[in-house]
Simulated scan of single mutants.
Amino acid sequence: MQLFLYREQNHINRVQQLKGKKAVVSGGGSGIGRAIVERLSLANIVTAVADLQPPADLSSNVYPFTCDVTAAHAVDALFAGVQEKLGTPDILICSAGRGIHEKLTEGDPEKWRQIIDTNLMGALRLIRAFVPGMLEAGHGDVVLVSSVSAGQAYPYGGVYAATKSALEVVAETLRQEVLPTVRVTVVAPGVTDTAFFENTVSGFHTAEDIGYGSIAADEVADAVLFALSKPPGVSINKITIRPTAQPF
């Protein structure tokens, strides 16, 4: 019991040491991204929320930015706005993403492009914009929200899974390019109870009808905070979190 209490207090102390850091969260207006923003805010991390429709009901240490991560000019504007309001961020969290459920022999390539531009190119644009400043500052954290779909082929999921597989290759490449200055973490959730499924470009599922149960977005956010709170010399490079009954 004493060991447990020591470890718990140690974790609390490490989270408290995040106070005053600055973060950028793409896709922070809803779902997993919004849960991450709320966790960061509670940890007293000043946070910029980038989304197509950033929420209005934000804490005083959270700044909203309207941004379409698929557009170069929008990411440039986000970078300029964050530099003006916050300065160089310590943390970049790429959570913006969309789903699609289409058969490869029947689907719409223009819709596939939307998914690739959001899930993959959006993250790449953010990395290119913000990580050089972290390298110059001598420290930083990048968190990429992936999916258990990465590396997992399944009918109707080819395009979505491909973007997440590519994202994880990007993450490992980035880790090797920026070590030991910047830490890189992939968080790969399974079925999560958010509006993600309602907002897929095509196809429709709910967390319930998939049939494995679901986890809450807060659980994913806790995993992100766990990785960020590790001492500077310790990297959590990948966390997979999913319902216990989910087979993949």
Rank of each mutant, 00 (worst) to 15 (best):
A188V: 01
R183Q: 07
G213K: 00
L18F: 14
N10T: 13
G213I: 02
G33P: 12
A74W: 05
V182R: 05
G233I: 00
F4M: 13
I91P: 02
A56Q: 13
V143W: 06
A137W: 07
G28A: 09
G157M: 05
K22G: 11
A217F: 01
I239S: 04
Q83Y: 06
K103E: 04
D51L: 12
E177W: 08
G190W: 01
D90T: 05
P243D: 10
E208T: 12
V75L: 06
E102R: 01
Y156T: 03
G28E: 06
F248P: 04
V148P: 04
R125W: 04
P232L: 11
E172D: 14
V234M: 04
F197M: 04
A221F: 13
L225I: 10
L58M: 09
P189L: 07
A161Q: 08
P89L: 02
D57L: 14
L174C: 04
P180H: 05
G138A: 00
A23Y: 03
G190D: 08
M134R: 07
L52Q: 10
Q9P: 04
V143Y: 06
E110T: 03
S165A: 15
A96V: 12
F248R: 12
A166K: 03
A77Q: 09
V62I: 09
Y154V: 03
A166M: 04
R183Y: 02
I239V: 15
G211H: 06
V62E: 09
F130K: 06
V184G: 03
E136W: 02
G99F: 00
D51G: 10
V69D: 03
Q176A: 08
A56S: 14
T200L: 03
N44H: 14
I32E: 02
T66F: 07
S30P: 00
A74L: 08
V131M: 03
N237V: 10
S149C: 06
G203T: 00
A150D: 05
L124N: 08
A153C: 10
G33F: 06
D90M: 06
V145L: 02
M134Q: 08
A223R: 07
